[in-house]
Write a protein that binds this DNA or RNA. Structure first.
Lengths: 348, 348
DNA sequence: CTTTAGCACTCCGGGGAGAAGAGTGCTAAC
DNA sequence: GTTAGCACTCTTCTCCCCGGAGTGCTAAAG
């Protein structure tokens, strides 16, 4: 059953007010804010809204607070989609003026920036759309015991490390190995790499094979790591400012969850850029009393990142959604500019 | 004036008890624990200890709690230096079985492990004993617009990155550049690198010089970053379990401090492996009501790391000190094994 | 001179009682 | 359908009282 326009208006006022104050909203306050109708009328409407499940009453003689269903309607239809002010956009872009160091450091910084900007805890991650593969290898001898392996992978990222060799390898073998690596171990999955490693075991001297297997295992690790990033969380301290988490136990519980459960945090849907989960809509028990807003952004062509914000169901959805998508856009732009190879000339 | 043996005994009981319970300790409880003397005698002694500044009274009719001075004496003379149990040592070593990925990721993990093991917030960092310098450069051409720069620096760490060239560089220039880099830009400070960059400006073609300056600026950044690490904090949520931080505002304040002020956290003295700072002994205002235990560990020969633990003045110094030094030893060993070049043969 | 028992005193903390206030639900009138 | 009025409910705040824990002091005993 569709709500009347007035009921929606009332619901909106209740949600807006409750988001602001965290206090149950009374009929009188609503009447004043709406104008034209008396508090008694509002009371009748409120009773209906409770009946229909959009509002709740903490106890008989208190005002009303929104139910998850109420928030859902609010988010879907009622809330005024905020546009970011120029000032805010400016601030977001400033906070993203990060130097492009390593991806995870950068994400950590971005996460902190998001959290500080929305005043709720935030989490952030990047994940490969598909598995990464190596594109090119290089070996640089250092001394008879050490060499440097350099690997370039999809997305033009480069990784390198010093490798200590367990057995001395004939210097002449180096070009052979590099050739072998580049011809047989690029553009394939990690599993395939291991398979091929087995198959070439016979063809090269054992010392070289040992080194090769070291290289492959390093490559596998680096690819794994680059493609499948850990989720980092930031700003869980913000919870303590919220009245619903003044209780130290509750705060501790949620903070522990955020710190530990890197896996089970909500991710955005593949098709849509933003997703809002209200209270019990979260499958995870620890989030049943909280809401999550999560957005996605692009990292080059092959990777996709997510940023999420966790807050009370009373979260300021309009503002958070606006700022979060501002950040997502900013990050997409940032990565588009810095990480991609310069196909079209960027002059700067 | 030196305290009598009995006064010290009493002080020890008070501190032990208060550390355990966070409640002021009364004369009767002490009398029971000590045996042989009556509570009235204890009361006389307690009055003396208050007079001398080792104990404090929250209010006239409460038990006594230790003052910072009392804790100090406790830490210096009274506390029973704990030895780690085999079980604990085992646990520490297990939690440090980290794969050697990037240093900062590893530190983050170690920090979390420390925090989880002592149940207080922890912070951790690594810093160069002296400024790092580059040891060797290598350039790998990719295509006419891109190349990979590889830099090996002190401590056998290797960094690499894809560089996009603003101007095409004659392939013949590459060996020249590498030679120049290795002969003129290794084993010197970042400042010196910039100075030399200026001085060679005339000697090579402008395109090559542009690339060279890109390389130098990348090198400078990487050296800077490798030598001067950010402090990471972990487990500040542990605060919320402590009675002295049940107050959400206090907890928030300290957590904000830990999250933001990477600079002003205590560092260990150069000569001693462990340092304990009690309450007002901390120069930083935000830590005046807390105690800090901080230990150092070695990363190879050139770097030194620190791990610190922040807690209430009522912190369990004996346990924390023991476990922290356990971790410090573990980390020293870990880095000794993994990061150093294999001078002596490690077979594994 | 130290130790102990005894006792009056202080202060915190918990547990009502009561009042204030906010808000509701219902009824009756418009 | 809307409104005014009113009795009722429930929370929250304050005040107050009381019990308990612990002290400081005194005077006596070792």
């Amino acid at each position: 059953m569709e709500l009347t326009e007035r009921k929606k208006q009332i619901l909106k006022v209740v949600v807006d007010d409750y988001i602001r104050t965290a206090e149950p909203v009374g009929s009188k306050a609503i009447a004043v804010r709406m104008g034209g109708v008396s508090s008694a009328t509002i009371r009748n409407e409120l009773a209906d809204l409770v009946e229909l499940g959009y509002l709740e009453q903490p106890h008989t003689s208190a005002g009303r607070i929104p139910s998850p269903k109420g928030y859902r309607l609010y988010v879907n239809e009622l809330m005024e989609r905020q546009k970011l002010s120029l000032d805010e956009t400016e601030k977001i872009n400033q906070s993203l003026h990060l130097k492009m160091e390593e991806l995870d450091r950068l994400l950590g910084q971005a996460g902190r920036a998001v959290s500080a900007f929305v005043n709720y805890p935030a989490y952030i991650a990047a994940a490969g759309k598909k598995a990464l593969a190596a594109r090119r290898f290089e070996l640089l001898p250092v001394d008879e015991r050490n060499c440097i392996v350099v690997m370039m992978m999809d997305g033009d990222r480069v990784k390198s490390q010093l490798l200590r060799m367990q057995l001395k390898v004939d210097p002449e073998q180096f070009p052979v190995l590099v050739n072998l690596l580049n011809s047989h171990f690029t553009k394939i999955s990690v599993e395939e790499m291991n398979r091929r490693l087995m198959s070439v075991a016979e063809q090269i001297p054992p010392q070289a094979f040992l080194l090769l297997s070291q290289i492959v295992s390093y490559a596998a690790e680096a690819l794994e790591e680059a493609g499948h990033r850990e989720i980092v969380t930031a700003g869980s301290k913000e919870l303590l400012k919220l009245p619903e988490f003044r209780n130290a136990d509750k705060a501790h519980e949620l903070m522990s969850f955020l710190a530990d459960s890197k896996e089970s945090l909500p991710v955005p849907d593949a098709d849509s850029p933003m997703k809002i989960l209200i209270g019990p809509e979260n499958v995870n028990d620890a989030l049943k009393d909280t809401s999550v807003v999560v957005a996605s952004y692009d990292i080059g062509d092959d990777m996709r990142g997510l940023i999420g914000v966790v807050g009370p169901t009373r979260m300021d959805y309009a503002t958070v959604a606006a700022r979060l998508s501002g950040f997502a856009d900013g990050l997409t732009r940032l990565f588009g500019k810095q990480e991609l190879p310069p196909k079209e000339d960027t002059h700067r």
